[in-house]
């Protein structure tokens, strides 16, 4: 009997019947039949002495949206940042286990992390535009990838901004500093910037946390549209969003992967009690 409904808590159960998805989610069978884009095997991660991920094993199928959910501090961002080796940037970290992208390991000192990051793009939890113009922000990735020529760059910038639902708002101020944009606009700018490099895999850490409902819904449309060409991993605190956009959902708790499965199944019929408690808003 879940009569109590609040705005940020999901209404249980999140059945596709009660929440007809405009965007059909991939079925469990479909997921199982897909080749893994990334497979993570017994991953442990440490910040100095503190273990942030314990024995995480997860398969991320190609051309699917995988949502990572779980309470604050459970290791979602840490996990995401392992996938493009962004944690290399932090001193005193240690990683154990294996991460395979397209059949090849991405861990270890021999991996070309620059090439890896060109294929695995990322939108950060806190938006971090460069103190440059709007145009230069989006053009940065293509530029470092060697794209030259103002008209080619302009085309990429426009397309990326349109997809990130920002074009109409900034088309007349491409040369203004990105820091003059509002928080939500900055967040969409960061999405556009990641799209401009045209990666294979897109990692999004709460990409809609500062967005109004209209922009959120456009970003969700974008995620759905990108699904057929990219593999997307998205962290979200919004249960409905996870249910709306993802094909697979993984629930993390205190550094462990508690449960992962097709989104339909996980939200309607969670295997673990902790998962059920979390998605129904009983804790976390």
């Amino acid at each position: 009997m879940m009569q109590e409904t609040t705005i940020d808590r999901p209404i249980m159960p999140l059945r596709p019947t009660s929440f007809p998805r405009e965007r059909p989610s991939r079925t469990a069978d479909d997921l199982a039949g897909r080749p893994p884009k990334i497979s993570v095997d017994h991953l442990n991660f440490y910040y100095g002495p503190k273990q942030a991920l314990s024995d995480v094993t997860l398969m991320i199928p190609q051309h699917c949206v995988t949502a990572l959910i779980g309470p604050s501090g459970c290791g979602k961002s840490t996990f995401l940042r392992c996938l493009n080796r962004m944690n290399d940037m932090i001193d005193n970290t240690r990683v154990e286990g294996e991460i395979i992208l397209d059949g090849r390991s991405i861990l270890g000192p021999k991996v070309d992390v620059v090439a890896l990051r060109k294929r695995v793009g990322m939108v950060f939890q806190k938006s971090n535009p460069f103190p440059k113009s709007v145009f230069e922000n989006v053009a940065y990735g293509p530029r470092v990838a060697g794209v030259r020529g103002k008209s080619v760059l302009y085309e990429i910038v426009e397309k990326s901004l349109v997809r990130a639902a920002l074009w109409d708002e900034v088309k007349d101020r491409l040369n203004d500093s990105a820091l003059q944009l509002s928080g939500g606009q900055q967040q969409r700018l960061c999405i556009a910037r990641a799209l401009a490099t045209n990666p294979d895999v897109l990692l999004m850490d709460e990409p809609a946390s500062a967005l109004d409902p209209a922009s959120t819904s456009r970003i969700e449309d974008l995620i759905f549209e990108l699904r057929d060409r990219y593999t997307i991993v998205i962290v979200t605190h919004n249960m409905q969003q996870a249910a709306r956009v993802s094909d697979q959902t993984a629930f993390f708790y205190q550094g462990e992967l508690i449960e992962a499965g097709s989104t339909n199944e996980l939200f309607t019929n969670p295997a673990r009690k902790q998962t059920e408690d979390y998605i129904t808003g009983r804790f976390g």
């Binding site: 493009n84 940037m89 620059v114 090439a115 971090n128 470092v144 990838a145 990641a194 490099t197």
Partner: peptide, 15 residues
């Protein structure tokens, strides 16, 4: 210079 700016650039495949 905030680390987040460096990270933004590295994540775009910058050397």
């Amino acid at each position: 210079v905030p680390r987040s700016l460096r990270e933004a650039a590295y994540a775009l495949g910058a050397t």
